[in-house]
Design a protein around this nucleic acid. Structure first.
Length: 590
RNA sequence: CGGGGCGUGGCGCAGCCUGGCUAGCGCGCCUGCUUUGGGAGCAGGAAGUCGGAGGUUCGAAUCCUCUCGCCCCGACCA
């Protein structure tokens, strides 16, 4: 591909509104163009990278035994009504109705395709002999994001690979799931991405049923807890807190005292007023667990984890109680609840942090009043089995698997493998007959990869001041041929010959044939980030040499013109398969 | 959905508070000459309904009202 025949609108300045590196660089390098909030055009270079990512995904899915199909983006709304996901998705589901003769046909743009594929399978899979099978597609998905942001990371239309496995047993599902997991590792490895498989909120099957593939990045929207020593990694919703450090400190117990705290109903206000630390406070949250009020006790500076609470109390649904319920249950308005002297006897649950807290500050269940010197055991009691992990993990918490401590990192979710179970097969009547002629719902798994996020995540984690640093596998082009002087006949003869021969060798080469100054070309080359830059100029040609430089190296290398094609082709072929140099430089960069 | 910010040639911005001649600047673009190994110099040029609507005024990019769009923080996120 010749630059002058291509459409590569690079920008020297950062467009207003772009803030994070991936967004800025993808815009500046002429990869994407914003059409509206949450919708981008992929320009020629961006599209090439997108297609390369797509191809890697496709190859590995095929290698893992999955079969590709393509479902429509428009779907009948009725399908979503059957699984109750019209409500579940709410405004995120893009709905509309089109007129056909004298009737209206309600539709939705697919935000994911469990319904469509399960409906398909319900019509064509009816025997255990037809399974297991894993089907996938690579398709645009539509979600009306409340707040699209971060360029291509969160958009309302995006390209996703979604796969669905159909199995007759949990054991078979495990196998399909493992195959997908392995395929995902190969995909991200081939892309040269540094990723972390993290435990995610498990589905109806429980156990290790859900894993998210995360790219650690400062601008990631998700937070993962990670143990650098044993490798334990989980998203914040899921991350367990280790059970060490539960013994109380050996300090004398203060007397319990009632203190006035006028209009101090938040942790911040109370700590400011009383001069105590949030760590000394007991935060008392009143939840409705399946319509029954319960109290959840947490250390003042911790965040409640509603998924953990829901599991602990074994409820279908939990939500924070309304103010009138809190008034009735505690005897005080919101902000003054505490475990001592509550108006009603409701079940108390405590995070394990409480076990090592002494002389605490907490609400007195009276308006504008708190208690100090509150101590577990003396002033209030809970059964042993009510002390559980109910909060989000925090930086420095004990690792649940080893003796080390957890760190928190932001991350970009690029993939998710998930054991779904029978939710959709039951709702949509996808059943099979087993060898004993018994009817069962098909057991499903689903497996997604955000193709756009592969690119954004890569750029986010692989760039320098000058621009993007692509691995060969994802780069829009593998080699950039950069003739220093397009008006010089000798230069152009050598360049054209090289260009033709590299193409002949199936190397994906971009020829910067613009009649522009060296500085312009070099800067664009760095910005776009083609991994191997080949400079051909009169200076080198005098010695029958040309210059090659990996994007991540600082110094170029002169190589002989004679045999240059083979040398370059070999380098690219090697790097294409291993990404060894790309990885090595990244290791050095830290 | 709460809080904040921004809309002025293709891109980045100034001007607005304190209304006043042909609305500026940098980059990019076009022409010519000179240059030519890391975003060239000089000269000339094209290009803007100042996001939109309404209002105030002799006069509005500037003041007022409404509206649309975009971005950031938070809430939300199959």
């Amino acid at each position: 591909m010749r630059w002058t025949q291509n459409f590569i609108p690079t920008m020297k300045e950062t467009p207003e509104g772009a803030e994070i590196p991936s967004h800025v660089l993808m815009l500046r390098a002429g990869l994407i163009n914003q059409v509206m909030a949450g919708a981008y055009t992929y320009l020629p270079l961006g599209l090439r990278s997108l297609r390369k990512a797509e191809r890697i995904v496709r190859e590995q899915m095929d290698a893992a035994g999955a079969v590709e199909l393509l479902m429509p983006a428009i779907t009948p709304l009725s399908l979503w009504e059957r699984t109750g996901r019209v409500e579940a998705f709410g405004d995120v589901l893009i709905q509309f109705a089109v007129r056909r003769q004298n009737r209206k046909v309600p539709m939705a743009l697919g935000p994911t395709h469990e319904e469509v594929i399960t409906d398909l399978v319900s019509r064509h899979l009816s025997s255990y002999r037809q399974m297991p099978i894993t089907l996938y597609q690579i398709q645009n998905k539509f979600r009306n994001e409340e707040r699209p942001r971060f360029g291509v990371l969160r958009t309302s239309e995006f390209l996703m690979k979604d796969a669905y496995s159909f199995n007759t047993s949990v054991e078979s599902l495990d196998e399909s799931y493992d195959a997908m997991y392995e395929a995902y590792c190969r995909i991200f490895d081939r892309c040269g991405i540094e990723y972390l498989p993290v435990e995610a909120e498990s589905g109806p099957i429980g156990g290790d049923a859900s894993c998210e593939f995360m790219i650690p990045a400062d601008n990631g929207e998700d937070t993962v807890a990670h143990c650098p020593d044993c490798g334990y990694a989980a998203n914040l919703e899921r991350a367990e807190v280790g059970t060490r450090d539960c013994a109380p400190p050996d300090v004398p117990l203060d007397e319990i005292k009632k203190v006035d705290t006028p209009e101090a109903g938040t942790i911040a206000q109370v700590t400011a007023l009383l001069g105590c630390k949030a760590e000394q406070m007991i935060k008392t949250l009143i939840y409705m667990a399946d319509a029954q009020p319960i109290a959840v006790l947490l250390r003042g500076d911790r965040e409640a984890n509603e998924a953990k609470i829901r599991r602990a109390v074994d409820a279908e649904q939990i939500e924070l109680a309304e103010p009138d319920v809190i008034q009735k249950v505690t005897g005080a308005p919101v902000g003054f609840a505490g475990p001592v002297g509550m108006a009603e006897k409701i079940p108390l649950w405590a995070d394990r942090d409480l076990l090592r807290m002494r002389n605490c500050v907490t609400g007195a269940n009276e308006v504008d009043t708190h208690l100090t010197g509150v101590n577990l055991g003396r002033d209030f009691q809970l059964p042993d089995d009510r002390f559980v992990d109910l909060r989000n993990a925090d930086e420095g918490d004990p690792c649940p698997r080893c003796s080390s401590r957890l760190t928190l990192r932001h991350a970009i979710e690029v993939g998710h493998v998930f054991k779904l179970g029978t939710k959709y097969s039951e709702a949509l009547g996808a059943r099979f007959l087993d060898a004993e002629e018994q009817l069962h719902p098909i057991i499903m798994g689903c497996y997604g990869i955000g193709i756009n996020r592969i690119l954004a995540g890569l750029v986010e984690t692989s760039h320098d001041k000058a621009g993007i640093i692509w691995p060969v596998a994802l780069a829009p082009h593998e080699v950039l041929l950069l003739p220093m002087k397009v008006t010089d006949e000798t230069t152009m003869e050598a360049t054209e010959r090289l260009y033709a021969q590299l193409r002949e060798a199936s190397i994906d080469v971009l020829l910067d044939d613009r009649d522009a100054r060296a500085g312009v070309k070099f800067n664009d080359a760095d910005l776009i980030g083609i991994p191997l830059r080949v400079v051909i100029g009169p200076r080198g040609l005098k010695e029958d040499k040309l210059e090659i430089k990996w994007r991540w190296d600082s110094e170029p290398e002169m190589i002989a013109l004679d045999g240059a094609v083979e040398q370059i082709a070999d380098l690219i072929r090697e790097e294409r398969n291993t990404a060894a140099r790309f990885r090595a430089q990244r290791g050095n960069a830290g």
